[in-house]
Every structure is written in C-alpha cells, then in structure tokens.
C-alpha cells in the first residue's frame, strides 16, 4: 500500500512555489482584520480556531489511524480549566491556557493508556463515552457552575483574540509539519496506521508512540478551548462540551482529507464558512446536523481522500480535469 505523503519531494521549483503561496496566505491572514467588520472578524476567528481543532484531531485520527470521537472533551476541559484558573485562583490568562493544554494532554494519557493498546474500534468507543462522561461531570460539579456554566471576566478585544488564535493554530500546523511530516516520529505513526503488527515487529514501541500522539493531539484543543472561554466569556456544558464539537472536527478533517497537512485547514474553511452563511440566512436551527451527517456519509462513500486528494491529482492541467475527478471520485 503506498504511503500517502505528498510532502517529501526534494526542493524543486514546485516546492518553492508552495512556500511563496504559504507566505502570501500568512500575509493575508495578518492583514485580514483591517478591512473586515466586527462580525466578519468573529467569523474569521472561528474559522481559524476550527482549522486548529481539525488539525489536532487529524494528528490522532488521520496520521495515526485511531479515531477519537470524544475530542470535544479536551476542548471543554481546556475551556473550564482556564475559567477555573482565572476565576477561582485569580491567575493570569496566559498561565491559564498553558495549564489547560497540559491538563488536556494529561487526560489524554490517562484515557489512552488502556484504550490505545486495543483495536481502533475500542478506542473510538472509549473516547466517545469519555466525552459524554466529561459533559455529565461538568453539569454536576460545583466548581464548573453546573448546568449554568461560568462567567469569565470580559476582555473585548477582537483583534487580540484573532491573532492569538492565529498564533496557536499556526503552532499546531508547524508542530504537525515538523513532528509528523519531517521526523522519524511521523514515519512511526504512519507505520502504525498502515500495519500495526508489522510496525511492532520492526521495533516501533507502538503503545508509547500512540500515547504520545494522542497527548499531542489533545494539547492543542486544550489551549484553544482556554482561549475560546476567554473570548466568548460565558461557557456552559453544551457550548464547550457538546457532541457537535467532535462532529465538526471529524467532518472537517474528513472533508478536507485526513492524514494530510492542509486537508483539515481546507475542510475547516469550507465547513465553517458554509455553516455561518447558513446561520446568517436561516438563523438558529438543527437542520445543520442533517447537512453535516449527509456530508460525512457522502465523503466516506465518494471521495475518501477528501478535497486535498482531489487537488493533489492534476485537475488543474488543461484537458485532464474531468478524467482526474472521475478517477478520484469513486462511483
């Protein structure tokens, strides 16, 4: 089976073209808040946050091949952790998000230790049940404010949060690139995904590697959750621990293309923009769940390699577009 890794070619002109594109994208991202209205800054901030969340899901779900259906719990734990640190302990925000990330990663180690030793299906079930359990605990405990949630001190500075999310999401992508695309650690993860027994046979310590990957993929949602809590200032169990968080991470990563560096980014941009436009047009509703569910099913059935898989084929060369799409889209 060929390893799906499009980023290990030598530095050719195509590669430097890619770097130029990345630089341009970063420049646009930095300048974006100026021309936008507050509403659209908010939406851009959300898109960037989701890009980070989808990528962190991708670390365990895409690169390692272990589907975590409770990843929203790490986001919620991060949000509540920052809330508790700031409200009850009175510590600064920066310390809060750091503690959030570490708490989420620790939780991942504790959950991952028994479940990652088993087949993927057990892991999916265990993480899913874990997410539900955390939500229930948050509604019971006194320190989290129960079902009413927590009110954090307000800090109304949209560009600040925009750049902070940009920084953390950027770090998520940088970490993924350095650790998963350019280091032995990444190759070990790919080996586990493609054939776990064989990887173990050639001397990969699969249990430790998987736990490391899971902790890494939990750390970033923890930090992002902490920032989110301070950004929206009011959190409650349904908003930061609801099942929709995990649903969105999964659909974004799958739509964009799992196991690739830029797939989750593309997925996040597409899904969140569509979601917000629908919200602006129709208002609050539950119909978006139908669309998400149908999108997940359709992607699994027809384009398992996601948008990035479509883009990586040569659809931009004249004359080949339709043929390439026909090849990638599996009827």
């Amino acid at each position: 089976m060929p390893l799906k890794n499009g980023h290990t070619q030598p530095h050719t002109s195509a590669s430097s073209w890619r770097w130029a594109l990345l630089g341009l994208a970063l420049l646009i991202a930095f300048l974006l808040p100026w021309p936008l209205s507050p509403l659209w800054i908010r939406i851009a901030t959300e898109v960037i946050m989701w890009a980070g969340l989808a990528q962190s899901w991708n670390i365990i779900g895409g690169y390692t091949g272990y589907l975590s259906f409770g990843h929203g719990a790490f986001f919620g734990v991060g949000a509540y952790m920052t809330g508790i640190v700031m409200l009850h302990l009175g510590w600064p925000f920066a310390l809060g998000i750091l503690i959030s990330g570490i708490a989420a990663a620790l939780m991942a180690v504790i959950i991952g230790y028994p479940t990652l030793r088993l087949r993927g299906a057990y892991f999916a079930i265990a993480t899913w049940a874990f997410g539900e359990m955390i939500r229930q605990i948050a509604t019971i405990l006194e320190i989290t404010g129960g079902a009413f949630g927590m009110q954090l001190p307000a800090y109304l500075n949209l560009p600040f949060f925009y750049y902070l999310f940009l920084l953390v999401t950027g770090l998520t992508y940088l970490t993924t690139y350095l650790l998963l695309e350019r280091s032995p650690f990444g190759y070990k993860l790919l080996a586990i995904r493609e054939h776990e027994e064989a990887a173990e046979m050639v001397g990969v310590d699969t249990v430790i590697i998987k736990i490391k990957a899971f902790a890494l993929s939990a750390f970033f949602p923890g930090v992002l959750g902490g920032i989110y809590a301070y950004w929206v200032t009011y959190i409650h169990p349904d908003s930061v621990l609801g099942a929709q968080l995990t649903d969105f991470m999964v659909v974004m990563a799958f739509l964009g293309g799992i196991g690739s560096l830029w797939g989750p980014f593309l997925g996040a941009v597409v899904v969140q923009l569509v979601n917000r436009v629908l919200w602006l047009v129709w208002g609050e509703g539950t119909f978006y769940l139908v669309i998400i569910g149908a999108a997940i099913c359709a992607v699994v059935l027809f384009i398992p390699s996601g948008i990035i898989g479509l883009l990586q084929s040569r659809i931009f060369l004249p004359g080949t577009a339709w043929k390439e799409i026909r090849k990638k889209v599996k009827w």
């Binding site: 999916a124 998400i292 099913c297 699994v300």
Partner: peptide
C-alpha cells in the same frame, strides 16, 4: 480500496447517526 475499512465503517455510521438525530430534531 480504502486505507482502513474498519475506520471508514465507523465514520460512515457516525455520519448516519448525526443525520438521523438531526432529522429527528428538525
């Protein structure tokens, strides 16, 4: 020709469940 059939099945039924739940809620 899927990379990981078991996981594809998981994700597919996950999508089905969201679809059914969303439909029922709507």
């Amino acid at each position: 020709k899927r990379h990981n059939p078991v996981l594809m099945g998981l994700v597919f039924t996950f999508g089905l469940s969201i679809l059914a739940k969303g439909g029922a809620l709507s």
